[in-house]
Write a protein that binds this DNA or RNA. Structure first.
Lengths: 223, 223
DNA sequence: GTCTATAACCGGATAGAC
DNA sequence: GTCTATCCGGTTATAGAC
């Protein structure tokens, strides 16, 4: 019997993570010490380090788990909606709503996010996996819609929409309005703008501009 | 005789900052300890803290100083150039070129930059001053050019171009190509795109989209 | 009121034994 | 895979000098 995953270790790991997230939510990231996490999970500090390279890596684990949760909430809602604008709104709204309990320390994410040396930054190789899964979701958003998108743009769109989502999240992190009113406003309006931009960009008149923009992306890809 | 500013204290402060920046450049931010900074400047640790609230505040001071340096290099070069695209390129190129010696630890900037709680974040009240000065530069870039810009867009353009600049800087931070080749490519191409977007947005056909976009900005301003 | 010094605190991280 | 003991560096308390 192979118990590689479900053995005691995995259980300890799970409990450490669960406790850490709870403490982060309750007291915020900075005010939660590794000693507290260890105590809450009933282990020693170095044991925590055995399972997680650093305090920030606990955040990475959280990041993964919100993505899973997001998918679970988002995907079913997409099923009965074919309009691109609405589909985008659903994706973004569910994103910030599932992340809401962690709003207080989500800034931390972007903090490390911006550090090129951190493995946690969303552009890094280490984050490739989560990034790909998010980008894939964006691809499904587009492909599942009835929007007509030029082939050249369609190739790049998922990546661009992922950037768009990152921008929305950045805004959300800085948003302290009631019920994140301002972020909801942002999503409502920009989803429409983005959709219109996509449809306009198909027009003959806009082809040169679209080609330049896509050419730029292509250029930037090579080192 | 009032020697509030030029007395010994100011000199100490200057020397601490100079030493800190040198160490940051040579060894990077993380590997430079406050004790080293103090030693190098010939003062004690608590003395460093007397002049700078925290290690991050040393970075803030650096940030200010790069802005001053940028202006000194950028403004003269703008004098003989009336094309908006070229003017944008000048501003952005000089920005990343004057910052080049600090590329290694510039990530740190964005790291704190993205944390909503940090006074160093470029959207914070504490950063209003530097932000305004940067935005003013963008206003001069536009106003000093021969580009025709609709009045409603002109009002928002400096802020938007500042955001554009932040995006370029973010790209630069993650750029480890030789001579920042990729960032230079990005600047070269996007300056043209932005300029074209501005000019296209004046077209009658594009007025509705432009209005929506500007309306969005207006909406987001209110809390 | 401006500045400097000593010593300690606190929390993230690690070494190494078992 | 878990523990004990320790390091290391940012930060602060406190006390006093100019």
């Amino acid at each position: 019997m192979q118990t590689v995953k479900t053995s005691k270790g995995a259980e300890t790991r799970r409990s450490i993570l669960a406790m850490a997230l709870q403490l982060f939510r309750e007291r915020g990231y900075e005010k939660t010490t590794m000693r507290m996490v260890a105590d809450a999970a009933g282990v020693t500090v170095s044991n925590v380090y055995y399972y997680f390279e650093s305090k920030e890596h606990l955040v990475q684990a959280f990041y993964d788990s919100t993505h899973v949760e997001h998918l679970a909430v988002c995907e079913p809602m997409l099923e009965n909606e074919a309009g691109l604008e609405k589909r985008l709104q659903i994706a973004l709204r569910t994103k910030i709503e599932t992340a809401e309990p962690y709003h207080g320390f989500a800034g931390l994410l972007f903090k490390t996010a911006a550090d090129p040396k951190s493995p946690l930054n969303p552009f890094s190789d280490a984050s490739e996996d989560v990034r790909n899964r998010s980008t894939d979701l964006m691809a499904r958003i587009v492909d599942g819609s009835k929007a007509r998108v030029p082939a050249d743009l369609r190739r790049e769109l998922p990546g661009l929409l992922w950037l768009y989502q990152m921008a929305v999240i950045l805004f959300w992190i800085h948003d302290d309005s009631d019920g994140r009113r301002r972020t909801h406003r942002l999503i409502e309006k920009t989803a429409g703008l983005v959709t219109r931009l996509i449809s306009i960009s198909s027009a003959k008149l806009m082809a040169p501009l679209r080609k330049s923009a896509l050419g730029l992306i292509e250029d930037l890809r090579q080192p």
